[in-house]
């Protein structure tokens, strides 16, 4: 007969009190249910995308979405912003867009005889950069710099961007003509790259009915920005054992040196592997995922759950891989199946 204690009845070591941390997380993550319920009023399905949005929000990252038009990308971030009671801006990237159109500029006030700051749409909490690859490199660069540094300099003054600050950029995978692909170094600044697909049959039926009825979404603010900021601090406290740290590093290093991990068949398929930013992002995203699952510690399942989204835009594939129709997804899948789980 097996007589096991339940996990919550287990004794935990004193140095890091996992039990207390678990309890704290149970409390601090309670808002997630309310938030999901509220967003669910306007968005049907797309749970994966919403979960990834929350991971990026909780781990101070940004998200790059790839999917065909009409998958509720804009609605998702707009609803999230409304439910958190924060400011939302949408920037439609076009070839004639200028950095000042995003960041803002100094405008001469004739009556006062001085220059005044006119802040751009980046001065919001949630930014939707729609079709980011349609704007030239200088505009992309301006946005990505602001995303990284979380401040913007106009004239002589540097303005800090208000937290929570999340950029969700979208890319359309179908129309590639007249686009400026994001360089690898800039794409690396997105914590996650999420691929979204069409909703399920029943979900789409519900979406259709909801839109035909024309009922307003009626999303109300259910939590404050402060709740998110507090949750962010708690996410940082989520315990990550050194075995998990090693597991993350093994995965990242396997993308760089597959032969060392006895994955010889990937040697000629990978042109470059994940950067140190990938390790940081994977650790943070794993913690946020554990938080969303109401756990005070990270388990290998958390790492595997976020691995694809963290790595898919950080692995370069060779011409040989392209010729063999092998993409990043397959490479990540192989790595996850070959690196030993602690």
């Amino acid at each position: 007969m097996v007589l096991f204690l339940q996990p919550n009845k287990l004794n935990f070591m004193e140095s890091i009190d996992i039990k207390a941390l678990n309890e704290k997380i149970q409390q601090d993550s309670a808002f997630l249910e309310i938030l999901n319920l509220e967003i669910g009023k306007s968005i049907v399905g797309q749970k994966y995308m919403l979960e990834r949005l929350m991971i990026a929000l909780l781990s101070q990252g940004h998200i790059l979405l790839e999917g065909v038009p009409g998958l509720a990308k804009t609605l998702a971030i707009k609803s999230l912003s409304e439910a958190i009671d924060t400011k939302f801006s949408r920037i439609q990237f076009t070839p004639d867009l200028l950095p000042a159109d995003i960041l803002g500029t100094m405008v001469y006030n004739q009556s006062k005889g001085n220059f005044e700051v006119k802040k751009g749409p980046i001065f919001s909490n949630f930014i939707l950069s729609d079709e980011i690859n349609r704007a030239p490199a200088k505009v992309q660069s301006a946005l990505l710099q602001a995303m990284q540094e979380r401040n913007v300099t106009l004239g002589d003054t540097t303005y800090k961007l208000e937290e929570p600050f999340l950029v969700m950029a979208t890319q359309n995978p179908i129309e590639q003509e007249g686009t400026y692909n994001l360089p690898e170094a800039q794409v690396d600044r997105f914590m996650l790259k999420v691929k979204i697909s069409y909703p399920e049959f029943e979900e789409e039926r519900q979406i259709m009915r909801q839109n035909v009825a024309g009922a307003p979404s009626g999303i109300k603010p259910v939590i404050s920005a402060a709740t998110i900021l507090k949750a962010r601090d708690t996410v940082r406290e989520v315990y990550m054992d050194e075995k998990i740290e090693k597991y993350i590093l093994d995965i990242i290093f396997a993308t760089r040196e597959p032969v060392k991990y006895k994955i010889d068949n990937l040697k000629h398929l990978i042109s470059y592997g994940g950067s140190p930013r990938a390790s940081i992002s994977m650790a943070m995203a794993s913690k946020a995922y554990a938080f969303i699952k109401r756990r005070g510690y990270v388990i290998p399942e958390d790492v595997r759950a976020v691995a694809h989204d963290v790595l898919r835009h950080r692995i370069g594939i060779t011409y040989e891989a392209e010729a063999e129709n092998i993409n990043q997804e397959e490479i990540i899948h192989t790595i996850l199946n070959r690196v030993e789980v602690p």
Binding site: N11, F12, D241
Partner: peptide
């Protein structure tokens, strides 16, 4: 089922610093 319980327990010990008592260990 029994194997699963041991593996889950091990995950707690390995990743969540759980300290099972001697009965659990022997079990």
């Amino acid at each position: 089922k029994d194997l699963n319980e041991v593996l889950v327990m091990s995950d707690f010990v390995k990743f969540a610093k759980a300290q099972p008592d001697f009965i659990e260990n022997e079990n």
